[in-house]
Amino acid sequence: DDKEAVKFQRLYAEKGVVNAQFRLAQMYYEGLGVEQDYKEAVKWFRLVAEQGDAEAQRSLGEMYYEGLGVEQDYKEAVKWYRLAGYKGDVNTQCILGTIYDEGEGVAQDYTEAVKWYRLAAEQGDTDAQCLLGHMYDQGRGVQQNFKEAVKWYRLAAEPVVFEGDASAQYNLGVMYDKGQGVAQDHEEALKWYRLAAEQGDADAQYNLGWMYDEGQGVAQDYKEALKWYRLAAEQGHGTAQNNLGLMYARGDGVPQDYKEAVKWWRLAAEHGYSEAQVNLALMHDDNLDCLNSPN
């Protein structure tokens, strides 16, 4: 019974038991056994955070960052996040990396972002590993180094207990596709795209569709291309929507259907995809030999 649990936790929290104070804060935060009350949550998180508990420091940082129970204050949020981060809290380290990477409430600082991503990545956090790989890939906060990018992408991408990080799998696929930091290998690219695509990554679904469409790294298979284009298109991927329209217009892997082609081109055009806008105009002018698809 949550209400009884609140009474129990409060009894020990008021006696100074740290675990009870933290649990009581969580109950106020989540509204478990008590009316949700962010101010009361902040009060108890603060008591625990001031005793040096990293998880409470992260939680208090979140309250300040989101303006829950306190006036929004990015500086105060970062103060508490940094305290937790230096204590080794891996989630906070990744959060700090993102804050500095994107300049959310602080001056954008790629070097500082890399520092925090690395701390979390070295503890095995897959999000941080992927993000650190991206920093090396783009040369942000570090000298561009494709081999180092591949190293971190691979650590995040490899399925161990779980499926592996889909973004890292997609990015690793791109590295193999382009031959950046590794020998170019379209079959290996296909493998990583497929792993990411099966987890719902729209960019990977599009790239996998394109490889089946063009027969790159795999035997050409329009039906398989259509399947992956459609999955990406249904997530709003403009290029996939355009190419799905082309499949219907040409009758590749599907009965020719101009109405269906126009439907997908219109969706792509609404996303600002210029090739789809051109294709709609060509369709209107009955000039189908010049239909546009990306490389």
Rank of each mutant, 00 (worst) to 15 (best):
Q51C: 07
L60R: 04
H237Q: 13
Q184G: 04
G31S: 02
G181Q: 08
G61I: 00
A225F: 07
V160T: 15
Q129Y: 04
D213P: 07
L195R: 01
E55Y: 15
I95P: 01
R46A: 12
Y28L: 00
Q256Y: 09
S274F: 15
A261C: 06
G173H: 01
F8P: 15
R23I: 14
D177W: 11
Y29K: 04
Y273D: 08
A84W: 01
E71L: 09
Y100T: 12
Y193I: 00
Q72L: 03
C94A: 11
A13N: 09
Y176P: 03
L132K: 04
D252N: 15
N279Y: 08
L288H: 01
Q180Y: 15
K3N: 05
E4D: 09
Y12R: 15
D37M: 01
E270Q: 13
Y86Q: 15
A49N: 00
A196M: 05
V218H: 05
R82P: 09
V150G: 06
Y74W: 09
Q199N: 03
Y193R: 08
A121V: 12
Q277D: 03
Y110C: 11
Q138I: 08
W192R: 02
L282P: 00
A166Y: 06
L96G: 09
N145F: 04
D2W: 15
T111E: 14
K7H: 09
N279K: 05
A54C: 09
N292Q: 13
G238T: 14
R154M: 07
V70Q: 00
D1T: 14
N145P: 05
Q169K: 00
A5Q: 12
G181N: 09
D201H: 13
W265H: 00
G251K: 02
V90D: 02
A281H: 14
W192F: 05
R46G: 11
L47V: 14
E55Q: 15
Q129N: 03
D2T: 12
E198D: 07
G52W: 07
A189G: 12
R10Y: 04
H271Y: 09
L172F: 01
W228A: 06
G16F: 06
Y12V: 14
G124L: 10
Y100A: 03
V218G: 05
Y136R: 09
W228P: 10
V262R: 06
Q144M: 06
D213W: 08
A269W: 06
D137E: 10
V34I: 13
K178C: 15
K79N: 06
Y117F: 10
M283D: 06
V90A: 10
G238C: 15
L291M: 07
V254G: 04
A269Q: 01
D286F: 11
M211T: 03
V17G: 08
D101Y: 15
G88E: 08
